[in-house]
Amino acid sequence: GREWTEQETLLLLEALEMYKDDWNKVSEHVGSRTQDECILHFLR
């Protein structure tokens, strides 16, 4: 997939603090990424 922007990464980190590993909520918060993309990015 395409590179994550700084904004997307910030949203991901913010969402992780709020929702922990509720990836459905996390991906909704990021908006432009799927659950799978969020998980894969997080694991890097």
Results as ranks from 00 to 15, higher is better:
residue 1 G to F: 08
residue 1 G to Y: 14
residue 1 G to A: 12
residue 1 G to H: 08
residue 2 R to G: 09
residue 2 R to H: 09
residue 2 R to A: 14
residue 2 R to N: 14
residue 2 R to V: 12
residue 3 E to R: 11
residue 3 E to S: 15
residue 3 E to I: 13
residue 3 E to M: 09
residue 3 E to D: 15
residue 3 E to G: 13
residue 3 E to W: 02
residue 3 E to N: 13
residue 4 W to L: 05
residue 4 W to Y: 06
residue 4 W to Q: 15
residue 4 W to T: 08
residue 4 W to K: 11
residue 4 W to R: 09
residue 4 W to M: 08
residue 4 W to D: 07
residue 4 W to I: 14
residue 4 W to H: 04
residue 5 T to K: 11
residue 5 T to E: 12
residue 5 T to N: 09
residue 5 T to R: 06
residue 5 T to Q: 08
residue 5 T to H: 03
residue 5 T to C: 08
residue 6 E to T: 08
residue 6 E to S: 03
residue 6 E to C: 09
residue 6 E to R: 08
residue 6 E to P: 06
residue 6 E to V: 06
residue 7 Q to T: 12
residue 7 Q to R: 14
residue 7 Q to L: 02
residue 7 Q to D: 05
residue 7 Q to G: 09
residue 8 E to W: 00
residue 8 E to T: 02
residue 8 E to L: 00
residue 8 E to A: 00
residue 8 E to Y: 00
residue 8 E to I: 01
residue 9 T to I: 14
residue 9 T to G: 08
residue 9 T to W: 02
residue 9 T to F: 11
residue 9 T to N: 10
residue 9 T to D: 09
residue 9 T to C: 10
residue 10 L to W: 08
residue 10 L to K: 13
residue 10 L to H: 12
residue 10 L to R: 13
residue 10 L to Q: 14
residue 10 L to M: 06
residue 11 L to M: 13
residue 11 L to N: 05
residue 11 L to G: 07
residue 11 L to H: 09
residue 11 L to W: 06
residue 11 L to R: 08
residue 11 L to A: 08
residue 11 L to T: 11
residue 12 L to A: 06
residue 12 L to E: 08
residue 12 L to S: 02
residue 13 L to W: 05
residue 13 L to Q: 07
residue 13 L to S: 06
residue 13 L to Y: 06
residue 13 L to D: 11
residue 13 L to G: 12
residue 14 E to F: 00
residue 14 E to R: 05
residue 14 E to M: 05
residue 14 E to A: 11
residue 14 E to Q: 09
residue 14 E to I: 00
residue 14 E to W: 06
residue 14 E to D: 07
residue 15 A to Q: 01
residue 15 A to S: 10
residue 15 A to I: 00
residue 15 A to Y: 01
residue 15 A to E: 01
residue 15 A to N: 00
residue 15 A to P: 00
residue 16 L to W: 11
residue 16 L to D: 06
residue 16 L to T: 15
residue 16 L to N: 13
residue 16 L to P: 01
residue 17 E to A: 09
residue 17 E to Y: 04
residue 17 E to D: 12
residue 17 E to Q: 10
residue 17 E to M: 01
residue 17 E to N: 09
residue 18 M to S: 07
residue 18 M to N: 10
residue 18 M to G: 06
residue 18 M to C: 07
residue 18 M to I: 06
residue 19 Y to W: 09
residue 19 Y to G: 08
residue 19 Y to A: 04
residue 19 Y to C: 12
residue 19 Y to P: 00
residue 19 Y to K: 06
residue 20 K to N: 08
residue 20 K to A: 08
residue 20 K to P: 12
residue 20 K to S: 07
residue 20 K to L: 02
residue 20 K to T: 08
residue 21 D to F: 06
residue 21 D to R: 14
residue 21 D to E: 14
residue 22 D to I: 01
residue 22 D to T: 02
residue 22 D to E: 10
residue 22 D to R: 06
residue 22 D to W: 04
residue 23 W to T: 01
residue 23 W to P: 03
residue 23 W to Q: 02
residue 23 W to M: 05
residue 23 W to N: 02
residue 23 W to I: 06
residue 23 W to K: 03
residue 23 W to S: 02
residue 23 W to A: 01
residue 24 N to P: 11
residue 24 N to L: 11
residue 24 N to Y: 09
residue 24 N to V: 12
residue 24 N to R: 10
residue 24 N to K: 13
residue 25 K to M: 14
residue 25 K to G: 10
residue 25 K to W: 02
residue 25 K to V: 07
residue 26 V to P: 00
residue 26 V to M: 10
residue 26 V to A: 11
residue 26 V to E: 04
residue 26 V to W: 03
residue 26 V to T: 11
residue 26 V to L: 03
residue 26 V to Q: 03
residue 26 V to I: 09
residue 27 S to F: 03
residue 27 S to T: 13
residue 27 S to C: 08
residue 27 S to N: 06
residue 27 S to A: 13
residue 27 S to M: 06
residue 28 E to L: 05
residue 28 E to W: 12
residue 28 E to H: 01
residue 28 E to G: 08
residue 28 E to Q: 07
residue 28 E to V: 05
residue 28 E to M: 00
residue 29 H to A: 03
residue 29 H to G: 00
residue 29 H to V: 04
residue 29 H to C: 04
residue 29 H to E: 02
residue 30 V to G: 00
residue 30 V to F: 12
residue 30 V to A: 00
residue 30 V to N: 01
residue 30 V to L: 08
residue 30 V to P: 02
residue 31 G to H: 03
residue 31 G to C: 10
residue 31 G to A: 10
residue 31 G to F: 04
residue 31 G to R: 11
residue 32 S to M: 09
residue 32 S to E: 13
residue 32 S to P: 03
residue 33 R to G: 02
residue 33 R to E: 05
residue 33 R to F: 02
residue 33 R to A: 05
residue 33 R to L: 00
residue 33 R to Q: 00
residue 34 T to A: 13
residue 34 T to Y: 01
residue 34 T to K: 13
residue 34 T to I: 04
residue 34 T to Q: 14
residue 34 T to F: 01
residue 34 T to N: 12
residue 35 Q to T: 11
residue 35 Q to R: 12
residue 35 Q to E: 09
residue 35 Q to G: 12
residue 36 D to F: 05
residue 36 D to N: 06
residue 36 D to L: 04
residue 36 D to A: 10
residue 36 D to Y: 04
residue 36 D to I: 04
residue 36 D to Q: 11
residue 36 D to P: 09
residue 36 D to K: 07
residue 36 D to S: 11
residue 37 E to C: 01
residue 37 E to L: 00
residue 37 E to A: 05
residue 37 E to K: 03
residue 37 E to D: 11
residue 37 E to F: 00
residue 37 E to G: 01
residue 38 C to W: 01
residue 38 C to R: 04
residue 38 C to Q: 03
residue 38 C to Y: 00
residue 38 C to P: 01
residue 39 I to A: 13
residue 39 I to H: 15
residue 39 I to L: 13
residue 40 L to N: 13
residue 40 L to K: 13
residue 40 L to I: 08
residue 40 L to W: 15
residue 40 L to P: 05
residue 40 L to D: 15
residue 40 L to M: 12
residue 40 L to T: 14
residue 40 L to H: 14
residue 41 H to S: 04
residue 41 H to L: 06
residue 41 H to D: 02
residue 41 H to A: 12
residue 41 H to E: 07
residue 41 H to I: 03
residue 41 H to T: 07
residue 42 F to D: 09
residue 42 F to S: 14
residue 42 F to C: 05
residue 42 F to G: 15
residue 42 F to Y: 15
residue 42 F to T: 10
residue 42 F to I: 06
residue 42 F to E: 15
residue 43 L to I: 12
residue 43 L to C: 14
